[in-house]
């Protein structure tokens, strides 16, 4: 009897948690099938109407925006991971004066809110001639993705026993080969999880994207989404916006599902002895 009560209570709790986390997303999907006045009626199971999706994909710059976001996010992740693994090797495995200061500096840099660096960064980007180009976004996102990836990689690389590197050196491995043939495969699970987080951050970023781009063709998805407008200035096309949100979220969910197994296996495997 007591066990039954416990099971029931636990199940109820689970339902509440699932409802709490899933419902907003469910409501977005539901709204994306509706348009006009229907948006304001409460209807949990509307007919599936893909008009909003068709409109989005055929008109305007939405596809272009998705492509831009993908280019920016993939570039940020690739560059961050290349820089992170090489600097993590230096910071985690080599001894040099000022190593602690460099690490503290990297951490410190990531503590500033975006808005603080915005104006200075804007000037830098104008000076570099990157204004209104995707390069400006790659550059600015890396300011925030690198400290995080470098820190995580450094702590992971430190856990790899030094004897492994000695063995590789006895085998004639150069430093470059060591990083890519020994450390890179061993750090793959950590790379997958940090890469994923960097990807999500770049994919969803709004403030820099709004500030550093001007024309529709270089906008990324979050800005493009925010600037979707209706037929008149008094109409906010919720249905279309929701459809766009769903399309934008799906790649992230897929990525998490693909890498999830990798991340979990990375946490449990990797022992040397």
């Amino acid at each position: 009897m007591k066990r039954l009560a416990k099971t029931v209570a636990l199940t109820l709790l689970k339902i509440v948690v699932v409802f709490y986390t899933i419902f907003p997303f469910y409501w977005a999907i539901v709204s994306s099938f509706k348009s006009g006045a229907a948006l304001f009626s409460v209807d949990f199971f509307p007919a599936i109407d893909l008009t909003n999706y068709r409109d989005l994909l055929t008109n305007g710059n939405f596809l272009r925006n998705i492509l831009n976001s993908a280019i920016v996010a993939v570039s940020v992740v690739t560059l961050s991971l290349i820089f992170a693994i090489t600097s993590a090797y230096a910071l985690g495995k080599m001894k040099f004066r000022g190593r602690g200061i460099v690490l503290a500096g990297i951490l410190g840099a990531s503590m500033f809110p975006q808005i603080v660096v915005l104006s200075g960064l804007f000037g830098t980007i104008r000076w570099l001639g990157l204004y209104n180009s995707l390069g400006s976004l790659v550059l600015s996102y890396m300011i925030f993705s690198l400290p995080f990836t470098v820190w995580v990689m450094t702590s992971f690389i430190r856990q790899i026993p030094a004897e492994l590197e000695d063995a590789a050196r006895m085998d004639g491995c150069s430093t470059w080969a060591m990083i890519w043939q020994i450390y890179f495969p061993l750090l793959a699970p950590a790379l997958a999880s940090t890469g994923l987080l960097a990807f999500i951050a770049s994919w969803n970023e709004f403030l820099f994207a709004l500030t550093f781009t001007l024309s529709d063709t270089v906008r990324t998805v979050p800005v493009g989404l925010a600037l979707i407008s209706g037929s008149s200035r008094f109409e906010l096309p919720f249905g279309t916006i929701m459809a766009a949100s769903v399309i934008v979220t799906v790649p992230l969910i897929l990525l998490v599902l693909i890498f999830q197994r990798r991340i979990v296996s990375g946490l449990t495997a990797g022992a040397v002895k």
Binding site: P161, L164, D166, A167, M170, L186, G270, V272
Partner: peptide
């Protein structure tokens, strides 16, 4: 050639 205490095999 050297044989290490922890074997230092490449786990991957």
């Amino acid at each position: 050639a050297m044989v290490f205490q922890s074997y230092a095999l490449y786990p991957h």
